[in-house]
Design a protein around this nucleic acid. Structure first.
Lengths: 187, 187
DNA sequence: GTGAGTGACGACAGGATCTGTCGTCACTCG
DNA sequence: CGAGTGACGACAGATCCTGTCGTCACTCAC
């Protein structure tokens, strides 16, 4: 009864990450990933549109961000709204080692870096749209999303490196650091 | 004497762009591109590492930017140095219709968008490195490159849309627009 | 000139990615 | 208990990309 073991998607993700670490992205085939997950290559493509997507298909994060932005109290600024949404990040990005391994695999593979970039951009665009729906003007939304994305990346980086502070505090610290850098350099 | 017609690379680029416009990126095969250029599929891969690269392999722009940065007069600010480098852009991006068609093809194809994103990022990284070699500190270089890339994108966009002003003026105008937006919104 | 590189190219083979299609098996629900 | 329904395997096939080898035009030293 190898069939219907349940959680096929998760098994594929786990197998893919392990194999990417062992053999690199280019060195592992979709057939290998599927075999390790007790599935066929064809089933892999039922769950993921392509080989890269197995490391990026998680859209729970995005859904959460958008939900928080939607429910944010009126009168809150654009950037604080984003940071409130981002504060929920560690609830989804678990366990931490998974995130670290994933980051290492991406850093080692240009194709995966391409995919990550476009995911970042599309997320940023959705954040802009969500802010506009909340009543902010286009430019404010765009700037907040650009700044917010940078803050988020910085905070996730520190969190993955082992900083155990509350994630909201990490976000606030990253924001402050950016302001410190941008302020004096603006001349 | 179909062989050795000369400029094989250019013929492939031209054929690829035409076919992408006619049939879309996904709808055209490498074999079709090669055939229209009077070459074989194998020769395509001698000139370009993969199918996407046929629209991005031009690194003359990058070489020019880096050369200008290298030769910039001492004492010039980081951002003005970048803008001076960017001013040479239209000498390479010709003819304009080619740029427009290329932009349309990219906008219509997610795979090409991915490639363009990573090209942008790597260019930005090289600009940072070049500025650091010129003596700027890391953060100044990073911020200047980030801002400069945005200005460049904006100016190229307007230029492609038909704005016939001197490109250096387009860059200056884009810079001013960004400052206008960023200033009031900084609160 | 003529023979040894050298580089662009064609021809061929083959592995990997991704898609279409169909039949099967477990599960659900009326 | 029979009709969906969805996950899955099996198979075929187009396309992408790489390795390898032989050929042709050109160059350059002798």
């Amino acid at each position: 009864m190898a069939r219907w073991e349940g959680n096929a998607r998760g098994r594929l993700e786990r197998a893919a990450l392990d194999l990417f670490r062992e053999q690199g992205y280019d060195g592992t085939t979709v057939a290998q990933i599927a075999r390790r997950a007790n599935l066929t290559e064809r089933s892999f493509y039922r769950w993921f549109t392509d080989k890269r997507e197995v490391l990026f298909a998680d859209d729970e994060l995005e859904a959460r961000y958008l939900a928080v932005i939607e429910a944010a109290p009126a009168g809150l600024g654009a950037l604080p709204t984003l940071l409130a949404a981002f504060a929920t990040t560690p609830e989804v990005l678990r366990p931490r080692e998974f995130v670290i391994e994933r980051a290492a695999a991406i850093a080692a593979s240009p194709p995966l870096q391409e995919r990550e970039l476009i995911k970042m951009v599309t997320l940023s665009q959705k954040l802009v749209a969500a802010l506009v729906r909340r009543g902010y003007d286009d430019q404010t939304a765009y700037l907040a999303a650009a700044l917010g994305s940078t803050i988020l990346r910085l905070a996730v980086h520190r969190w993955a490196l082992g900083d155990d502070a509350d994630f909201a505090d990490l976000l606030a610290a990253a924001r402050q650091d950016l302001v410190d850098v941008a302020g004096p350099a603006a001349g």
